[in-house]
């Protein structure tokens, strides 16, 4: 169930555009913030608020990579391994981070559901490499192995507390 606050927020978003359908992307962000990802229930709830079909909303959600249509960990790290970051060794940093998180081949989320680690396309932080995006909310730049370890430790503490 979407909270009343979320529903109200979606109605406000609809009023910001000449055509209410434009609010579907921000509405999906609102729903994702509540659910942590976008299960069918969340898609249906957004569709009901938007006056769209679930199929329409689901197709938008699955088109864009920042919407999670499959379950993710409590925190999501999108780690850039595109060319400018890769020239600074981002592949090795990514592999090392996967190892640190104990991720098997093809596994993106840690066993305790604390952290999801994904490859990201270029994040536009090419002058401060490697770069990552945390929880769609903040970019972290110049990520040395030490800084990555510190970030992971911080996320784990936050997850264990919750």
């Amino acid at each position: 169930m979407l909270s009343e606050t979320a529903k109200q927020k979606i109605q406000e978003l609809k009023a910001r555009y000449p055509n209410a359908r434009s609010a579907v992307m921000p509405a999906l962000y609102v729903a994702q913030a509540e659910y942590g990802w976008l299960p069918q229930e969340a898609i249906d709830a957004v569709a009901a608020e938007m006056g769209m079909t679930s199929t329409e909303v689901g197709s938008v959600a699955s088109f864009y990579t920042m919407y999670h249509v499959k379950p993710v960990g409590a925190h999501v790290i999108d780690f850039c391994t595109d060319l400018p970051c890769a020239l600074a060794g981002a592949d090795a940093a990514f592999a090392r981070l996967r190892e640190r998180l104990g991720l098997d081949a093809h596994q993106e989320t840690t066993a305790d559901d604390a952290i999801t680690l994904r490859h990201a396309p270029c994040l536009g932080g090419c002058d401060k490499v490697p770069t990552l995006l945390l929880d769609n909310q903040a970019q972290y730049q110049n990520m040395t192995d030490e800084k990555l370890d510190a970030l992971v430790a911080q996320l784990r503490v936050a997850h264990d507390k919750s």
Binding site: S22, A23, M25, L28, Y29, Y64, M66, Y67
Partner: peptide
């Protein structure tokens, strides 16, 4: 936006903006 390089193409951007 929500993660799609294609939306930098002007007409794809308009489609995206239209939901």
């Amino acid at each position: 936006g929500a993660g799609a390089y294609i939306c930098g193409e002007e007409t794809a951007m308009l489609e995206s903006l239209e939901g």
